[in-house]
Amino acid sequence: MAFHYELRFAGIGGQGNMLAGAIIAEAAIFFENKYATQVPTYTSQVRGGPTKADIIISDEPIYFAESTHINFFLALDQRTYNLYKGDTLDGAIVLVDSGLVNVPDEDRAKWDVYEYPIIRTAKYEVGNVITANILSVGMTGELTQVMSLDNIFKAVEKRVPPAFLELNEKAFKMGVDIAKKLKAEKGK
């Protein structure tokens, strides 16, 4: 069967999850020559409302672009975690911000769950909270192996304003390193 991978980035408005999703889709289209879609869902609130970006990457044209069989689910907020986790496949990779999302035991039994204080790390270790989404992109790339990390970073470069490129590069690399560490802890 043709390659087909579905992701969902969920959180609250203002966290940068829509952009993170767009970067993944752009990496797939521009640097992996695949089909990809990113569909944002948000509310009327500019910040603070539940949001999600559904991303599909495929070898074939994509018609229905909402993720309904999710291979990778990222959540940076408890309410949106609860709201949007429903379409996640058994055995899928789930990444949450450990400072903001409590994963119930029944979910841990179904999914390959990774937890890390993503937003805290962006704020105190990268040095700017706005890099949380790029940190997530780095972690997503390493955890999913859905495409080459170099190609994902090329999409980051394409999107990020030059003045913030260095900071975002730091966030991206830190995200990759953290994901590697988390995988190693699980013996992967």
Binding site: A25, I29, K34, Y35, Q38, V39, A65
Partner: peptide, 9 residues
């Protein structure tokens, strides 16, 4: 709203 905001190839 879906088609309007759907980013794709």
């Amino acid at each position: 709203a879906v088609l309007a905001h759907l980013n794709g190839r």
